[in-house]
Design a protein around this nucleic acid. Structure first.
Lengths: 225, 225
DNA sequence: GTCGTTTTGTGTCGGTCTGTGTCAGAATGA
DNA sequence: TCATTCTGACACAGACCGACACAAAACGAC
């Protein structure tokens, strides 16, 4: 299968690096020369879905999943961990090529549009300042408020997506490192602890509001400094 | 099919505009409020592929093709005219949702649209102010009136479509998240609770009027701030 | 490696929100 | 006027969320 894909893409004019296992992926990606990865879910040393998620967390490249399973559920899971497309085996090489072109076209347009537009690392809201590079929250008198790593990640996820409802699983994706908690309810307690440090009353919150059956939303005017 | 898609996406929290023909698409796209188009290839007045190409030439939005044809060749052609994805009928709504999320995620990362640039939607009516970003209702003296999530969603649906009769099932689509109530009567209860908080008398309402056999209508001069 | 502290996920309880059932009043039509 | 249907009001049960306690895990110091 690997040989077929490599042959097809090489024929089409792409530079291809074929790797036999997940272990060799990270080093290759670190070179920064990769635009798109075609990941087979059936790997000898790791789960393809986990690999996909790791790739998407660290690199801004396209990911297309190849899988022997064609169930709708499998496709949905694949797309939700961050794949740009999902192709079930058996497939025609021409279709893989077409999907690769589609993804790359999008990436090129994106690259031309926003060339490494790094968002500023300091947010200001309601008298607070959140320095995302220093991982620190400053209160009213520029006094640093001690925040745990988890609380900071949650606050960063909320503030950087202010005025948008974030579901619990979305927040879990944003704040969890590699091992995800089993229950969404862990988000609730984190929000509770964060609210207390922000002086936000849960019954009448001014910063982090609860959306019943929907998740949480950060409501405040946020300035990027 | 159009109704199914509209229903699915509305339930998922998206704002959906369903159009019956290609002719009405260009005007809608010109408003600049569209992020993604789901195009059926089988249109009464035009070829879906041509429409897809036209959309992609003039707008930088996502395009997903829906088609009854599942041949590889068809998929390749669809992707080559500029679609970001191609889904063959019959399909599961969940998969359409997953693919939409995938395409939108890519578009957002491209930074083509800054979420914070969205105008803060504030409606003013009869001395009240409804801040749809802060999910808050302000009373006469700019005092925040506590509103539950469900009450707020209902009020937002009514106010943003002021002076239009909204049927109960339309309101259900607009306010319910994924799990739907079985009976339309739940709307009545919500309207009743909302009326009480707005100080509206159901026997002589000034804001939310009942349309017998029709639903409800919000009658007041609404200013967008 | 061991101990102590901090962080964090899970279980449980209670309060709040929300849909459903029921009944009474109001509107509609004959 | 009467019968029928629709809507409003209220009570209640179920679901959801916040707070707290506790255990497991991570981290730091030695």
């Amino acid at each position: 299968m690997r040989a077929v894909v490599q042959h097809t893409l090489t024929r089409a004019g792409y530079r291809v690096t074929a790797l036999p296992s997940a272990a060799k992926v990270t080093a290759t990606l670190a070179s920064g020369q990769i635009d798109l990865a075609v990941v087979d879910l059936n790997l000898p040393d790791a789960d393809g879905l986990t690999l996909t998620r790791q790739i998407r967390e660290k690199h801004k490249i396209g990911v297309i999943i190849l899988s022997g399973r064609s169930e709708t559920t499998d496709r949905i899971v694949g797309l939700e961990v961050g794949a740009d497309d999902y192709l079930a085996k058996p497939f025609e090489p021409r279709e893989l090529l077409a999907r690769i072109r589609s993804v790359l076209r999008r990436l090129e347009e994106a690259g031309a549009k926003a060339p490494t537009e790094e968002p500023r690392a300091v947010f200001a809201f309601e008298g607070w300042k959140l320095d995302c590079s220093a991982l620190t929250l400053f209160g009213a008198d520029n006094v640093a408020v001690p925040l745990t790593t988890g609380e900071f990640k949650l606050l960063e996820a909320l503030v950087s997506r202010a005025n948008r409802v974030l579901q619990r699983d979305q927040l879990l994706d944003l704040i969890s490192t590699n091992d995800a908690p089993a229950f969404d309810r862990s988000i609730d307690v984190r929000v509770g602890r964060l609210r207390r440090k922000l002086g936000d009353d849960s019954k009448n919150p001014r910063l982090i509001k609860t959306v019943r059956n929907g998740g949480y939303i950060f409501v405040a005017k946020v300035d990027k400094l």
